[in-house]
């Protein structure tokens, strides 16, 4: 069973590595946006999947990362990819400030406040707050990224850059999932009171998860800005946040492979049905209702963690 899973993963990696050989530019671009959404989904997964917080304003942090990159790279000429940590940091600090007072709110209230948050950020961007966001037109002329002296501008180059970032994200979050921090979050999601009783500082852990997710989304913002070279407030609407949320919920919240599958389903699959473009959201909505009724945990739910008790037995005798 375990081996079978790894074969699928290996085939998937081979497919991505060799994709430029047999896919045309259009499909490479589709893969690129799937990659971007996969990272965003994974970053939201920290908050929704592990932390169990219903956060639907993730586009706000993504926007802040993208705008940080766009503003600094266009006005000071700093190479785009160098701005990744800074963009992440800006988004993280913003998340820290706004989440501090609302983090204790119960599920559905948190949901509605985060929706308010993303709307406020979007309106602020449109209103050209501080005179640096370029208003409704946004910011254009963001330079292309360079990596090891190579200028990245072709689809397949972006493919490797973006999916490289996905790989780093997967590695990092996989380690996180199996760390003390990750376990504490899952505990907190399953039973907040019991977690608190066992010495998990719930508010602090929730806040840390929130800030980490925001930090990561901010970094993806850099990638997005560098790839698009033009950003505007409309790229960060509430409906974007709904897409990320869908990716996590449909794919399987709390499971890395599930979230990546979710990105393929939500972003990639509709490309096969371009003629039905207008029905896309309708189908999504119906799928959401359907999933909640028949498979609440998503297509690929996280596997149960098995605690190996055999090492506590001596000679077959339970202690």
């Amino acid at each position: 069973m375990k081996e079978k899973r790894y074969i699928v993963y290996a085939l998937f990696v081979v497919f991505l590595l060799t994709a430029p050989l047999y896919l045309n530019r259009y499909w490479l671009e589709v893969l690129n946006s799937v990659g971007l959404y996969a990272i965003l989904g994974l970053s939201l997964n920290i908050i929704v999947g592990y932390g169990g917080m219903f956060h639907m304003g993730h586009a706000a942090f993504y926007a802040i990362g993208a705008y940080t990159t766009a503003i600094i790279s266009t006005s000071y000429g700093v190479p785009v990819l160098w701005l990744m940590p800074l963009s992440g940091l800006t988004a993280g600090v913003f998340a820290l400030v706004v989440a501090r007072p609302i983090i204790h709110l119960r599920g559905d209230y948190l949901l509605i406040v985060t929706i308010g948050l993303v709307e406020i950020v979007r309106i602020a961007l449109i209103n050209n707050v501080f005179g640096i966001t370029g208003g409704a037109n946004g910011i254009f002329g963001i330079p292309r990224p360079t990596l090891f002296g190579y200028k990245i501008f072709k689809s397949h180059q972006f493919l490797y850059l973006i999916w490289g970032c996905v790989a780093v994200t997967v590695f990092f979050f996989y380690r996180l999932e199996n760390s003390r921090f990750g376990r504490a979050l899952v505990y907190l999601k399953e039973d907040e009171i019991a977690a608190e009783g066992s010495g998990v500082h719930t508010a602090r852990y929730k806040l840390a998860a929130f800030v980490l997710g925001a930090f990561w989304a901010g970094m993806v913002g850099t990638l997005f800005a560098a790839k698009m070279t033009i950003i505007s407030p409309e790229s960060f609407s509430f409906w974007e946040s709904v897409l990320y949320f869908m990716i996590v919920i449909l794919g399987g919240s709390g499971n890395i492979a599930g979230v990546i599958l979710g990105a393929f389903l939500v972003i990639g699959l509709p490309e096969f049905f371009r003629g039905l473009e207008n029905y896309r959201l309708l189908m999504f909505g119906a799928a959401m209702i359907f999933m909640m009724i028949f498979r609440t945990q998503g297509i690929l739910p996280p596997r149960q963690k098995v605690f190996d008790v055999s090492r506590f037995r001596k000679g077959g005798e339970p202690i």
Partner: peptide
């Protein structure tokens, strides 16, 4: 709540 959001989109 998720179902409600889905219904809203529909």
């Amino acid at each position: 709540v998720v179902s409600a959001l889905g219904a809203s989109i529909v």
